[in-house]
Design a binder for these strands. Structure first.
Lengths: 112, 112
DNA sequence: CTATTATACCTCGAGACTCGAGGTAATGAG
DNA sequence: CTCATTACCTCGAGTCTCGAGGTATAATAG
């Protein structure tokens, strides 16, 4: 409540799952991609993304593999079936909340 | 991340400020109103609302007055100028994030 | 060749927020 | 008289984000 970073909870997870739906990616790449695609409106740092990736893998939503690209070692993550279910659950939850907020705000909220 | 209550952070505050924009209300009433207006999609309990009301008052976004209605003592809250500014800041932040998510999801997200 | 920047991974503690359980009182209904 | 409802409140647990900090290698600049 202190400053203006509200409404963040859950969005990094949603973003990760959505990006990995298209193709496998590695952590550092995901951090850049989220900021780039959203014009930095959404910009979780490495301190958010890496622990989340580990937790999502542990929960079975993601699987990882090491891959060497040009002498660089990267950890690539991809979506499992469980991760896909998680993504669709989060997506519909987001839709639901979005509808609720729209109702609450009563037209005062631009669709932009 | 454990279950499906994600995306909650900041929404109770937004809801309170938005409701008080229309008229003064008391805590218990706000709890019921949020659940009622959103069909329980959004339903913060008293343990969320009361501390938030106190914090918002302390920060100068709300002011309160005691009022006896039918022998019942209630604490009515209303929006200050500062609270109105806070509401508009949160509203535009929500719009921004909503746009970011829409971009991220890429059409996969229904507008409902 | 060497220094700095970019890539790529990671952890930790602080702070914020939600949540449910629990507690107190007074009023109204059966 | 008893119980559900109204109306207020606090507390601890759990979850999450955030920034700072740490390591190591490759590319670029001077």
């Amino acid at each position: 409540m202190t400053d203006d970073n509200s409404f963040m909870s859950g969005l990094p997870e949603l973003a990760i799952l959505r990006l990995l739906q298209d193709r496998e990616m590695y952590g550092y790449e995901i951090v850049q991609a989220i900021a780039a695609r959203t014009g930095s409106a959404l910009s979780p740092g490495e301190g958010v993304i890496y622990p989340l990736l580990h937790a999502l893998e542990k929960s079975g939503a993601l699987k990882s593999r090491r891959k060497s690209v040009g002498g660089r070692s990267r950890v690539y993550y991809s979506l499992t079936a469980k991760g896909a279910r998680r993504l669709s659950a989060l997506t519909s939850r987001w839709s639901e909340l979005n509808g609720a907020v729209r109702t609450l705000m009563g037209g005062a909220l631009a669709v932009r």
